[in-house]
């Protein structure tokens, strides 16, 4: 009898031992967090290379007086003999210089300016008289200095610092730096972006101003402006800060975004010309005189810029 009790006890103990918890179930494929991809060349370090601001004070609006003559041996005459004008442009900024995804053709307000210059040099407009060269923001000074292009028309702000290296035409557009945010964010100005990630393209005037804003946002620097729109759409930045002209193109592409806040700066767009080609500067200024008078409003409306910028008028040129 005693033996049976002992045996039953052992049996119960074995069963109980089998019923105890065997630890937690194994996660066969643990994945902690997911890092969303970023456009190549995106710099999230928050460091900004600020160009030396030791340029002498100047009036960036002032350019050389217009002159539409093309004497033999002049820069324009050489371009005409070559058969085509080489223009450094953007091919990714909507409304200004972009490749139409359907046709592959370059279009935009800046492209219209190039076409006018070519028109005046060759007497009539023919697509074969222009060779577009797509360049980065950071390449604008280099291609002008090396003489790879005749002109740069690429949302190019005239600054005293840049005037040290290149020559500019008269101003053909007055832009202002503002902020692009998503409509739902409720952000109204740059102050509300303090401590948040804000995107700007490298080697631009906008990125420097971002560093001066108070409270300071956390800058994210990309190669191209469109990369900023990608980051905003992917939710990796809270806003994009640059010229309202460029931001207008972004809201066209993404109706869920808004351009908000006061104007942080005045950006004066001019045509960049290699330093020393004064005849070319004067010639371009003559073209721009005509462009401002006869075509500017038409192109402004064509690209729908009034929807974001309001009704603007062509800037008044200043000459020295």
């Amino acid at each position: 009898m005693k033996r049976w009790t002992w045996l039953a006890g052992a049996l119960v103990a074995t069963l109980v031992a089998g019923c105890g918890s065997a630890g937690t179930p194994v996660d066969p494929a643990p994945v902690g967090s997911v890092q969303r991809p970023m456009p190549g060349g995106t710099d999230v370090s928050g460091k900004i290379e600020q160009g030396g601001s030791d340029a002498p004070n100047c009036n960036p609006q002032q350019s050389l007086r217009p002159d539409d003559s093309m004497p033999p041996g002049s820069t324009m005459d050489n371009i005409k003999k070559r058969g085509y004008l080489i223009a450094g442009v953007d091919q990714a900024t909507n409304l200004w210089g972009f490749r139409n995804p359907h046709t592959g053709e370059l279009e935009g307000f800046d492209i219209d300016v190039v076409k006018e210059i070519a028109h005046d040099i060759f007497g009539s407009y023919d697509p074969n008289t222009i060779r577009f060269k797509a360049i980065n923001s950071s390449e604008r000074e280099t291609v002008l200095a090396s003489g790879d292009v005749d002109v740069v028309v690429r949302t190019y702000s005239v600054t005293c610092e840049r005037l040290q290296k290149v020559a500019f035409s008269s101003v053909y557009f007055e832009a202002a730096q503002r902020v692009l945010v998503t409509e739902k964010s409720g952000i109204e100005n740059i102050a509300q972006l303090g401590g948040k990630k804000v995107c700007a393209a490298g080697s631009s005037t906008s990125v420097n101003r971002l560093a001066e804003a108070k409270p300071k946002p956390e800058p994210v620097v990309t190669n191209n402006w469109t990369d900023c729109l990608v980051l905003l759409q992917q939710g990796q930045v809270a806003g994009v800060s640059t010229d309202d002209t460029i931001l207008a193109g972004m809201t066209e592409e993404d109706p869920a975004t808004r351009v908000v806040g006061p104007q942080l700066s005045e950006e004066l767009y001019g045509v960049g010309v290699p330093k020393g080609n004064e005849d070319m500067v004067r010639f371009v200024n003559a073209t721009l005189e005509d462009f401002r008078k006869n075509m500017w409003r038409d192109r402004f409306r064509h690209w729908g810029l009034q929807r974001v910028l309001g009704d603007l008028t062509p800037p008044q040129p200043q000459y020295r």
Binding site: P39, G40, A92, N94, P101, V230, M250
Partner: peptide, 12 residues
């Protein structure tokens, strides 16, 4: 017709 498509492709 949005040029940002090229930026997404470059990211991909």
């Amino acid at each position: 017709g949005n040029p940002v498509g090229a930026a997404y492709l470059a990211e991909a």
